[in-house]
Amino acid sequence: MAFHATATRRLMTEYKQLSTQSLDDSMFTAGPINEQNLFEWEALIQGPDDTPFEGGVFAATLSFPKDYPLAPFKMKFTPPIFHPNVYEDGNVCISILHPPGDDPMMYERSSERWSPVQSVEKVLLSVISMLAEPNIESPANIDCAKLFRIDRRAYDDKVKQSVIDLLGVDEADLHDTSTADK
């Protein structure tokens, strides 16, 4: 399978490239869940600093199509996170992960969409910046976008709470560890 061979090679290259980078100050890690199957990856993303997501670590699965890199992969936060551009089931809605071609709604320009130039690394960086700056013009989670637009403080609090819930610690512990670090 021509597609498949290309996809495997390309995924291998990307994986190698990602794993040879120093991971200390990287904001994410990504790699196949099982090296037998290069088409299912898991990514861990750090919440960017100075945002309500700060301190959180978010897991996501990346599912690659067999014709990668001609078609984009899918990204799903497991468990789902509360963010205007993430569906309630965890799927990420970001324009560079939308298949190329003309958007029937003419909403997104084709230059914003997937192309083989993109890569796991670039997409994850985009997702990190999306965490910091949601695009509320095309929200996936309407309620969240509404909250973000109307009451930013409530949104921040809710996100912070969800991060704390996700980490499975209560706030006191979080403070303790952060002070202990200092």
């Binding site: 597609f3 014709d67 001609l70 071609g101 084709s110």
Partner: peptide, 14 residues
């Protein structure tokens, strides 16, 4: 070729 099968644009600059 495999890209042109889907999109008849340059992958880099479109």
């Amino acid at each position: 070729k495999s890209w042109l099968e889907r999109q008849q644009t340059c992958p880099t600059c479109r």
